[in-house]
Structures are given as C-alpha cells and as structure tokens.
Simulated assay, not measured.
Amino acid sequence: MSRSGADAERGSVAAEFALALPAVVLTLLLGAGALGAAAQLVSLQDAVADAARLLGRGESDATAHAAVTASIGGAAVSSEARGDFICVSARIDAQIGRLISVPLTASSCALSGGL
C-alpha cells in the first residue's frame, strides 16, 4: 500500500516549525539585547556630556564622576584637560545575554571655565 500525497506531508509543517523556532527566538533575543546596549550607550553619552559640563563650570572631579556613575553603574570614568577644553571619557561592558559582552565607550568635551 502506498500513501497518498497528503498523508506523506502530514506532520512536516510541525517538524519545520520545531526546527525554525529556536533560530527565531535566538534572533529576537539578540535583537532585544542589542537595543538594550544601544540604550545604555545613549545614557552613557548623556552622562559623560553632563560630567564634562560640570567640570567646565569648575565642579570637582568627584562630583563629575559621581554624575556618570549615578546614571550608569559600574562605569569607569576618566577626565583630562586638553587646552581650553576639559574632556570626560567613560567605559562600560554591556551584556547581551550571559555570554556576549560588548565594550561601550563615550567621551565628551566642554569649554573649561564656562558659566
């Protein structure tokens, strides 16, 4: 006895779905992780710009560094004078899932001695 064409295809859609589902889920999770890392980078850049303006107005290094670490916990912050400018840089490692770590860096400069 031979099977008809419809009987031979029975269950193939479920099998293909079971094979494709893990790849789709992984892609969605990686995409969500990448968006989270991008949001962290925007927050880091904003915090570094605020810190540079604080230093430009004459605030202490501790105050400026605290402003960055208050926005982004665990950020490594450094500052330096470059001529008439004061520049602040910060670095964090963004985690995408448990296995992927992406280094994110941001820097900003402000005119020293500003109001």
Results as ranks from 00 to 15, higher is better:
79 S>F: 07
99 L>Y: 04
103 P>V: 02
66 A>Y: 04
109 C>N: 09
74 G>C: 04
83 G>D: 09
45 Q>W: 01
91 R>W: 00
62 A>C: 11
27 T>G: 15
20 A>R: 12
74 G>E: 06
78 S>Q: 13
88 V>P: 03
81 A>Q: 15
9 E>F: 04
17 F>N: 04
25 V>E: 07
85 F>C: 06
13 V>Y: 01
108 S>V: 08
76 A>D: 12
95 Q>T: 03
90 A>V: 05
58 G>D: 05
83 G>R: 12
62 A>S: 13
15 A>C: 11
55 L>M: 10
66 A>L: 13
54 L>V: 02
30 L>K: 04
85 F>K: 08
112 S>R: 15
56 G>R: 01
80 E>Y: 08
37 A>F: 02
40 Q>L: 07
105 T>K: 07
48 V>T: 12
32 A>I: 11
32 A>C: 13
31 G>P: 03
63 T>V: 14
14 A>N: 03
53 R>N: 01
7 D>C: 07
61 D>Q: 14
69 T>E: 13
64 A>F: 05
28 L>K: 01
21 L>T: 10
65 H>K: 12
26 L>F: 15
38 A>E: 03
98 R>M: 10
80 E>W: 13
19 L>H: 05
111 L>S: 03
100 I>Q: 00
81 A>K: 05
19 L>R: 11
11 G>Q: 06
99 L>P: 00
114 G>L: 10
2 S>L: 09
92 I>D: 00
76 A>E: 15
114 G>Q: 11
45 Q>K: 12
43 S>Y: 08
